[in-house]
């Protein structure tokens, strides 16, 4: 998925194909790197575990287990592309999940409870967006407020776990759409759907291009007459909405709402987005990359549990990968600036 998904043949004369490709798609390099790392992880684990790793069951489980994180990463990609950050999404996910579980437990039908979960997330996102855009609050601080607000609201709804017995919600998780040994659940479809919609919005709508323009230079975007204020607020609303949707996915996955869910998950989402090649200063990156980032993250987790190693290794490896990617990104940005 590139911004210029038209033709990729090189021009008859002038620069070589490779030069043309690099000059057009330089910003995709970090995402290619993420794909390479994912492949290395797969192949490495396959060799290490003697052919026990790349199985349809494991790959299918990768999407199933990380569907909520993928949804969060999609929303986070919008925000980071504008050059912002959203720390609230883990809490928003917990709030949405416990809110849904509570509503369902009290007999509210699913067709009311689910929209309420999504709207709850979007509302917190709207609040953050307005703080950032109209009150000039740093995204870090505004979304930190959202983090505490979301967590607090989750505790207000319930202090303990609430089991979900609504069949419609459990169906999202328990259904296995099979193709041989491969399977996908409706939660997985929701996550992939979110990626597809986000990719369409980012690359094929003027709103999406405005998001990129803001990340490149907010002042330029404003002087170019783009609707900057609206787009920026919308990025946070989308992230909040994705938080709400992730709450639904996680509730279906775990069969319960729990107010302590997702503590620190916002950082996992940010890590996945960055590993996937989106640059923290904004303007460069792809939602497909964020999906790869989530898979890299999930694969590392799977490998570690296969090896029976300490979970702390997970943190160390993800930390090292992040470091690597941030350095790679710096190099790319420095190079493109150096060519001016």
């Amino acid at each position: 998925m590139t911004a210029m998904a038209t033709r990729t043949e090189s021009r008859e004369s002038g620069p070589s194909f490779l030069q043309t490709f690099v000059s057009r798609h330089g910003s995709m390099m970090p995402t290619f790197a993420a794909v390479a790392i994912l492949l290395v992880l797969f192949v490495g684990a396959e060799i290490f575990l003697r052919g026990d790793f790349i199985t349809p069951r494991n790959i299918s489980a990768l999407l199933l287990d990380n569907a909520y994180l993928l949804v969060l990463a999609v929303g986070m990609t919008f925000v980071i592309l504008t050059g912002g950050i959203d720390l609230s999404v883990g809490s928003v996910m917990a709030f949405s999940g416990i809110l849904g579980a509570k509503l369902l437990a009290e007999g509210v039908p699913a067709f009311v409870a689910v929209p309420a979960m999504l709207l709850g997330g979007a509302a917190i996102g709207l609040m953050i967006g307005i703080l950032v855009q109209y009150f000039n609050v740093q995204p870090f601080i505004a979304s930190l407020a959202g983090l505490f607000l979301g967590r607090g609201l989750a505790y207000v709804v319930s202090l303990s776990s609430i089991k979900v017995e609504e069949p419609g919600i459990l169906w999202l998780q328990s259904t296995r759409i099979r193709l041989g040994d491969w399977y996908i659940t409706p939660t997985g479809l929701i996550a992939l759907g979110a990626v597809a919609v986000a990719a369409f919005v980012l690359h094929l709508t003027r709103f999406g291009r405005t998001i990129y323009a803001i990340g490149g230079s907010e002042q330029s975007a404003r002087l170019m007459g783009l609707k900057v204020a609206r787009a920026k607020v919308m990025a946070y609303v989308i992230s909040g909405l994705c938080g709400g949707l992730a709450g639904l996915v996680l509730t279906a996955y775990s069969g319960a709402g729990y107010p302590r869910n997702g503590i620190g998950t916002e950082l996992d989402a940010i890590a996945a987005v960055v590993i996937g090649g989106t640059i923290l200063t904004g303007g460069r990156g792809y939602v497909i990359g964020s999906m790869i980032g989530v898979f890299v993250y999930g694969t590392i987790k799977t490998i570690i549990s296969f090896m029976g190693a300490e979970q702390s290794w997970m943190q160390i490896i993800v930390g090292a990968l992040l470091l690597l990617f941030i350095v790679v990104q710096r190099a790319i940005v420095a190079r493109s600036e150096g060519r001016r």
């Binding site: 210029m4 323009a213 170019m224 783009l226 303007g283 600036e337």
Partner: peptide, 14 residues
Amino acid sequence: LCANLTVGENVMLG
């Protein structure tokens, strides 16, 4: 203009 976008995009943005 936006340095992170292509020439064509910058020309046509919006």
